[in-house]
């Protein structure tokens, strides 16, 4: 017996070990179309690089009321080596820029970056000797969430948009992952 999900005929609950093995091997070997992206987009492990007041908004969106986990971004990881999604939450200053760059470099591929809040996106209202005017000056950014701070709904929208982007990930040879 097995219960199949409504999208990709994926066995989500099964009574036989063979079907369970089949799920993972189909994801890995790419026998199931889009399976690898499916797994990636709903298991984004975030590294919260929290530097400023947007952190409060991150806490809100990751905790019970808004609960980012419902959308498939369950666990924050405090080691960049275990994370796929770098969330830069708050203002980055020149003194801190080498740290951010190193954290990004320590993450394993494939990896994505969210600029959370207007400071991380463009520098916001800071334009001075101290502030990096947008983290995309240092590292590539996949999704920008301007807002001071962005509302939790905005972040959830951004997460879903990012998941779209993740599911369209292509390898350098042009093939889509998992196909």
């Amino acid at each position: 017996m097995k219960i199949v999900d409504d999208v990709g005929s994926l066995p989500v609950i099964t009574t036989t070990r063979e079907d369970a093995i089949g799920l993972f091997s189909s994801l890995v070997k790419g026998g199931l179309k889009g399976g690898l992206q499916w797994a990636r987009r709903y298991s984004l492990f975030q590294y919260p690089f929290v530097t400023a007041c947007c952190g409060m908004e991150y806490m809100s969106v990751s905790c019970a009321r808004y609960d980012m986990a419902r959308f498939g971004a369950e666990v924050p990881r405090f080691s960049p080596r275990q994370a796929d999604l770098l969330m830069v939450v708050g203002t980055v200053v020149h003194k801190n820029a080498p740290v951010l760059k190193r954290v990004y470099e320590q993450m394993t591929e494939p990896k994505w970056v969210m600029a959370f809040g207007v400071c991380a996106s463009t520098g916001g209202f800071y334009q001075n000797y101290a502030t990096v005017e947008g983290i995309d000056r240092i590292i590539p950014v996949d999704i920008y969430v301007p807002g001071c701070p962005p509302s939790p709904e905005q972040v959830l929208d951004a997460l879903m948009l990012l998941q779209e982007k993740v599911s369209r990930l292509k390898f350098p040879d042009g093939k889509e992952a998992g196909t």
Partner: peptide, 27 residues
């Protein structure tokens, strides 16, 4: 940071006198 040259709150310090520590793109 120790590499910083000059004193940024002096009135004659350039308003945008950034002194980056890592390679970056000019916006």
């Amino acid at each position: 940071y120790p590499e910083f040259e000059g004193y940024p709150l002096r009135k004659d310090y350039p308003l945008n006198g950034e002194q980056p520590l890592v390679e970056m793109r000019d916006p």
